[in-house]
Structure formats: C-alpha cells, structure tokens
Design a binder for these strands. Structure first.
Lengths: 159, 159
DNA sequence: TCAAATAGCACGAAATCCGTGCGGATTGCT
DNA sequence: AGCAATCCGCACGGATTTCGTGCTATTTGA
C-alpha cells in the first residue's frame, strides 16, 4: 500500500506544530504532548508514543518533569520527510534485496553486480525515497500553518 | 507503509513476463498462468487472482479454454506502474480529503479552495503518483529481462 | 467426452497497525 | 517534603488489511 501510517501522520502533525511554535515566538521552549493533542483530533496516548520514537531518532529533544515537552532538534528545513518516515515506520527495504523476482539459485544477493538489475522496483522506491528526502518539514509546515487556527477538541478517545 | 503489495509485485512480474513474451517472438499469443508461475517463486493460485483483476482493469486480455491465457492489451511503453497499482490496490486517496489534519468544522471538504492547503501531504503523494505514472512497464521489463533466464520451480506452495 | 484454462465467490490464516494500560522516573512549584 | 505535570518503557487486546487457498462454473480445443 502506498500510504503513510497513522503514526507517521500524527508525527508529522506534531512536528509541524513544533515548527510553528518555534517560528512564532517561543523558540526553544518545550511543547507538551497535551498541548499538541488539544489542537488536533489525535489520540493523545498514541501521539506520546510517536513523539518518543521521534526522540529516539533524535529528531526532537525531550524534557521531563513540569514544563517539559518536546522541541525540534534542528531547523524545519533541516528535517526531511524521509527521516520521519524512517523513524516511525522503518526505512523501506531499498538497500537489501526485495521479495519478488528473487531467484533461489543466487545465494543471498550480497554485492553482486546483478543485484541492482534483478529488481527494477528498487529504482522506483528509491525515486519515492528521494522525493521524501527532498521534502522538508518546512515545506510541509508553511502551507498548513494557515489552517491551524483554532484549537479543537478530540472527537474520539479524549483520554 | 510505503511499500507495494505482494499482489502488485506478482502482477508486475506477470506483466513483465507477458511483455517479454510479446517482444521475443510469439506476439499476440496467450500465456497461461501455469507458464508464468513456473518461472517465478509465486503462488500460482494468487497469481491467477491477480491476473483476473488486471483483466478487469483491461490491462491484459484473457482467453479461456485450452491454449488460453493472457496477453498484453497495449504496448509495454503504454502501460504505467500507476495503472497497475490502481488496478490491484486501488488508487491511493489523493483526490479526496486525507485522514489527518481534517478539522471537524469544515463540512466535507468538497471543492473549497482551502482544501489543497490543508493537506500538504497530498502533494507528496501526488509526487509519488506522478513518479509511477512516468514509470512504464517497458522500463521495468528491459532491465529485468536479463535475469529471467532459466525456469525455476516454486519453492513454496507448489499447488 | 475430456482436459486445460479462465471466471467468480468466499473463507480462514497470517501479518500489520491502532490504541490503551500500567508502573516508573524527572522536574518544578508550593 | 509533598504534589502535580510530564516523559519513559514495556506489553497487550482488538481491529484492519493482506495473503493464500478451496470450490464450482464456464469456455475452448482436441
């Protein structure tokens, strides 16, 4: 399926929110999960889980305790969509061998020169990957900041 | 998840095989599912299901009865990866509204001018889609035809 | 009449993803 | 010291999607 996971979408929403917060005044301040979840129809608990993963991937910095939260570790134009996807879904299987058209005769497709030929689908995925590497958080944020006007409550699962 | 389905991979394998068959001599002849399945480690039954879908999408033409099978309906450079994906997984949700960042205040996001702004992820997916529209079956086939040398039996599920 | 092949439908199994529960550790404020 | 807010880590049940298969009907050529 060519579709981002909910987790990734939630993560992007959070990152865009952090980018906005950094640009509009309070730079360096930590934004809590609660605040982010109050603005979008997103399950708070899952958002927290996603932000933890983003922290592990060192895309955001976390602070515990009161007044804690998350903040971007780099500038919005220094964070790519590819990094976010890799952090939350794992980098798609581009590097090693694919599933299909794999002949059982070849051992394990180490570094043989035939390997890139055998799976032309790799190039397609690399194209997609390159597209995401060229898409920065900044380019995502600047267009969506217009709609993040009013806070809205969570319609479902307001845990 | 940014990954093609097994069904799509199987479909592409079949289409590449059909393209090869059309180019190397026997043009117009119908290739059976059995023959295709004998060349790749692919569950025959599922391959048949996939080819049926491709026939419904009018990408291939089918012939029943003895000496029946499938054949390409167009030239390999006239069939795009996007068409195959659309036929086998359904066109990804680019046209209408996405899941995330959808404010409950807006009714159903019909044709309002704010809609393309609200989901910057749409542009990413359109980019991916465009990439697949520009990838023809021919470009996939010409690189992989080198490896389709010897027929190989199915390692698993040789039904 | 028979064998080979596609067409159609539907079903169980497997994998993935979603969302949540629970306890622990930190930190700032009173 | 105590308390409340917040992140951290692990793990689990349920929902959704996908995979693969079974069965039967229909068509076609020998």
């Amino acid at each position: 399926m060519i579709q981002l996971t909910k987790r990734t979408e939630y993560g992007l929403i959070a990152l865009v929110h952090l980018a906005d917060a950094a640009l509009t005044g309070r730079d360096g301040a930590f934004v809590s999960v609660r605040e982010i979840a109050e603005h979008y129809p997103v399950p708070k608990r899952l958002l927290a889980e996603v932000l933890k993963d983003l922290a592990r991937a060192e895309l955001v910095e976390s602070a515990r305790g009161k007044d804690g939260g998350y903040t971007l570790r780099r500038q919005p134009d220094q964070i790519t969509l590819a990094e976010v996807v890799a952090a939350l879904e794992g980098r798609p299987s581009i590097s090693s061998c694919e599933t299909a058209e794999r002949s059982p005769s070849s051992s394990n497709c180490g570094l043989e020169p035939v390997c890139p030929i055998r799976s032309p689908l790799h190039r397609v995925r690399e194209g997609i990957w390159g597209l995401m590497e060229r898409t920065t958080l900044r380019s995502l944020a600047q267009t969506s900041s217009l709609v993040q006007a009013g806070p809205l409550l969570q319609p479902k699962a307001l845990t």
